[in-house]
Amino acid sequence: MIPDIRPLTFNDFNLFSPLVHELMGHTVDNSLLKQRYSEMFQQNYECFGIYDDENLIGVFGLWFMTRHYAGKSCEQDHVYILPENRNGGLGKKVFEWIFNYAISKGCETFELNSYVNNYPSHKFYMNLGYDIKGYHFVKHL
């Protein structure tokens, strides 16, 4: 399957938010999630949907920034494909699309975070050439 990837805007929130909730395990109230996405879309963030015909089967976000240690970088965020659409090579094709898109925007590096206990994603990302460089720490204020 060749991925049909289309930009999403904040106006599409009700379309893609159920997939983000599935990824997160419904840990954030929908109104708070909507508020956060409203802010994200005003920053260096872009959101994309993965479609099979007209059915949204996946979602991901991309952050663009320049980092002192990595140069111009693209960070993939909340990459999620519905379980019934996994294990057929779609994820690899989506990441090829992401790499090409980011390169077209002048990026030199790619970064992402993955939940510590999401072992299948760790294997997937390492097979794509990612190296584990550290831990991501969070402190709520």
Rank of each mutant, 00 (worst) to 15 (best):
M24Q: 12
Q35F: 04
E108S: 11
D29P: 07
K92I: 09
S73Q: 08
G129A: 03
F99M: 14
N118F: 04
M40D: 10
E22F: 08
F124M: 03
Q43W: 11
Y37Q: 09
M65R: 09
K133C: 10
K139T: 08
G49K: 02
Y45H: 13
I81N: 02
R86D: 06
S38K: 01
L56P: 04
Y135Q: 06
L62W: 00
T66K: 08
H26D: 15
H68F: 15
F13H: 10
G134F: 03
Y80A: 02
L56F: 05
N55E: 06
F110N: 05
E46W: 00
G89P: 10
S73H: 07
K92D: 11
K123P: 07
G129Q: 01
V79L: 15
Y130W: 00
Y80N: 03
L19W: 01
Y51P: 07
F16W: 11
F99C: 14
Y125A: 01
V59W: 05
N113P: 00
L82T: 06
K34P: 13
D4C: 08
G58D: 05
R36Y: 14
E84K: 14
H78P: 01
I132R: 04
L141D: 06
G49F: 00
P18L: 13
V138M: 11
F95E: 03
Y130D: 05
W97A: 15
K139R: 09
G25M: 01
L141A: 02
N118K: 03
D4P: 03
Q43G: 13
D77R: 10
C74Q: 04
K34Y: 11
F48N: 01
H21F: 15
K34S: 10
L23C: 09
L33K: 00
Y115N: 12
E22P: 06
N44I: 04
K139C: 04
Y119P: 03
C107P: 08
F95H: 07
W63S: 00
K133N: 13
L33I: 03
L90K: 08
Y130R: 01
C47H: 08
R36L: 14
F60A: 02
G106F: 02
Y37G: 03
S31W: 09
N117G: 10
D53L: 05
L19Y: 07
F41A: 10
I5T: 03
H122R: 05
D131P: 07
W63T: 00
C74E: 09
V94G: 01
H26T: 15
L23W: 09
K133E: 15
F137W: 02
